[in-house]
Design a protein around this nucleic acid. Structure first.
Length: 105
DNA sequence: GGTTTGACCCTAA
DNA sequence: ATTAGGGCCAAAC
């Protein structure tokens, strides 16, 4: 099984209305230090995919997308449609992790 | 097959 | 507390 598949499967398991972080996903997949790889995997996602990539943010709850197929606005829009509050702060979008963070048990 | 890069994280100053 | 730098793992060059 590829690293990508693991990432995709795990991300697909995130329920609607909740979010997760790169580091957390990485810890659950293979090694806790591979957070960057999770982002790398999501980066290679095709424009049309069933993977809810929008529910993945960095450890601080910030959206760091800059130049990709999906602009930040798109992600924020989708998150808001799922009932997640996104606040605009200093040029970036933020999510309250304490409220919406999804933890796998 | 060695080097660079990346939607990041952690530690130290 | 905030900022800066190094490190980690896997793919692309």
């Amino acid at each position: 099984m590829n690293f990508y598949e693991k990432v995709y499967r795990l991300v697909k398991q995130i329920p609607q209305g909740q979010v997760s972080t790169y580091g957390l996903l990485a810890s659950q997949i293979s090694s806790p230090r591979a957070a960057q790889l999770v982002g790398f995997a999501l980066r290679s996602l095709p424009a049309k995919t069933t993977v809810p990539w929008q529910r993945v943010v960095n450890s601080a709850g910030m959206i760091s997308i800059e130049n990709l197929n999906f602009p930040k606005e798109e992600q924020v829009k989708r998150l808001q449609q799922e009932g997640i509050k996104v606040e605009f702060k200093d040029g970036n979008f933020w999510v309250d992790l304490g409220k919406y963070l999804w933890q796998m048990r």
